[in-house]
Design a protein around this nucleic acid. Structure first.
Length: 454
RNA sequence: GUGGCCAUAGUUCAGUUGGUUAGAAUAUCGGUUUGUGGUACCGAGGGUCGUGGGUUCGAGCCCCAUUGGCCACCCCA
């Protein structure tokens, strides 16, 4: 049988893992710098925890786990014969792989509310699974790196997240554009054009503006039952172009009669003003009225980050504020805001732009090369000594192996230093240290080697 | 869930109008070289041509089905 792995999943070889860890380490370091604490949640959640939180499409993309044992034994035969997959699913599956980190986090907060000091800042780096059809930059198993603050309504949190995004991508050398919008503005727009209850339809449609154009958006709105006059009223809003300030002034005029719309404008204005006065390192920001984001639970600010270089156009980071995600689990009035970095897409961007630093490739720093068992025995204590001193080192395990083989091993693993030990070296304790980059060799003691490589 | 493209050594790909034993590069292993890697030269192993059926004297090549991969839509990190 030919070995294989499920569609959309991947193996990661050492060369890739080293690069992936560089991304995880960078993000983790910034998370910690901002005072976020780590948690982990299980790979699987109860299906009921996840269903209904991601919109209709989202529910379909959740990987369901078949119940253990004779999973059909308690199912009504009629239900099976009717072949209604949707109804049957609930009977034969009660667990699912997690779809994102935010909903499990909300569940966690409710369940552990009495142990948590609020506001609670947590970070979480774990894989999530989506039963999507894989394509470029889209995987069925991928890692999200989330930072969320829950239990605080302050917009300072939004500002801080923008700075955090800037810090991460500055460290990774990726030029990015942070798009910001607010669901309240979108609610205001829906209100003003007289289609308040069609907010989701409208936001989903105008989210596609840059892909399908104005005509495409209008067509989709019409198909979904949005009235002609409403579409008419919407036109100036989606076609307006200008600076952030101009956009805000324009919105204030148009949404003047919408309380929620004005609240959204006020929030966005604060975020932009504060971020501007503090300044960002490398990231650019933009108010994008067409940014909607499909996830159902967002209620305030929404963020989306895209690379400004290369061909990779999908978002590499996204997030927003959710006012009542914990309410579903029995803890109301607990507002949170967070962002999620897509590690796998960031990997693809760094790879395309050649932004991985050379230094991340090597892990082992020193290899002991020997000519036989006697030499190997002589080396083992020296190896231990080097390791105790904090130098990543290893010995070629097969004592009789040819030099070419051992040197080739060092070369292949990009080990920068090799220490060669034969009878001469054992006799006087002066070891041959070879610099694999320059080819230079010197005879020195183990203590000097340790001193030099520390 | 809908649509398009593709499938030949571990990997990237050749393979003529259908014609004898399916090739190259690269990677791997061995040797040139029993104390020196990256370069060079020589050699070896490695394939049910994704799978199943059909057409044909004959199929890697043509036809059908199926599976898998890539890409786009939907949606998203």
């Amino acid at each position: 049988m030919k070995p294989s792995i499920p569609k959309g999943t991947r193996d990661f070889s050492p060369q890739e893992m080293v690069k992936r860890n560089y991304i995880f380490d960078t993000i983790k370091q910034v998370f910690q710098r901002y005072g976020y604490l780590p948690i982990e949640t299980p790979a699987m959640e109860n299906l009921s925890t996840l269903m209904g939180k991601y919109g209709e499409e989202g529910d379909k993309l959740i990987f369901k786990i078949l119940n253990s044992g004779d999973f059909l034994s308690n199912v009504d035969t009629n239900l099976i014969l009717n072949a209604d997959s949707k109804l049957l699913t609930n009977k034969i599956s009660e667990k699912a792989l997690k779809y994102d980190l935010t909903v499990p986090f909300a569940r966690y907060v409710v369940q552990h509310q009495h142990e948590i000091t609020f506001p609670f800042k947590r970070y979480q780096i774990q894989p999530v699974w989506r039963a999507d059809r894989p394509q470029k930059g889209r995987y069925r198993e991928f890692y999200q790196c989330d930072a969320d603050v829950i239990g605080s309504n302050s917009l300072v949190n939004e500002v801080e997240l923008v700075q955090l995004i800037d810090d991460v991508f500055t460290k990774l050398n990726v030029p990015v554009l942070i798009k910001i919008n607010n669901r309240k503005i979108l609610s205001g727009i829906a209100e003003i054009i007289g289609e308040k209850d069609k907010i989701i339809t409208i936001t989903v449609a105008i989210d596609k503006l840059d892909k399908i154009g104005v005509d495409g958006v209008n067509k989709e709105l019409q198909e979904n039952g949005v009235s002609h006059s409403a579409i008419e009223k919407l036109q100036p809003l989606i076609t307006f172009e200008g600076s952030t300030l101009e956009k805000l002034n324009f919105l204030k005029q148009l949404l003047g009669n919408s309380e929620i719309g004005l609240k959204g404008i006020e929030e966005v204005e604060y975020i932009f003003k504060t971020v501007d006065s503090l300044g960002l390192n490398t990231a650019k920001t933009e108010l994008d009225i067409t940014l909607a984001r499909g996830l159902n639970y967002y209620t305030g600010a929404i963020f989306e980050v895209k690379s400004n270089a290369g061909t990779f156009t999908s978002s590499i980071c996204g997030g927003g504020r959710y006012d009542d995600l914990t309410g579903i689990f029995g803890l109301p009035n607990m507002s949170g805001v967070g962002i999620s970095f897509g590690a796998d897409r960031i990997y693809d961007v760094l790879n395309e732009l050649n932004l991985f630093p050379e230094s991340v490739a090597a892990s082992t720093k020193l290899l002991f090369v020997t000519f036989g068992e006697a030499e190997q025995n002589y080396c083992l204590p020296l190896l231990a000594k080097a390791r105790t001193a904090g130098i990543n080192s290893e010995i070629y395990p097969d004592a009789g192996a040819k030099m070419k083989k051992q040197m080739g091993y060092a070369d292949d693993k990009k080990i920068p230093f090799v220490v060669i030990i034969g009878s001469d070296e054992m006799l006087n304790g002066l070891l041959t240290l070879k610099n694999m980059t320059t080819g230079e060799q010197a005879k020195i003691t183990i203590d000097s080697i340790i001193e030099e490589l520390k």
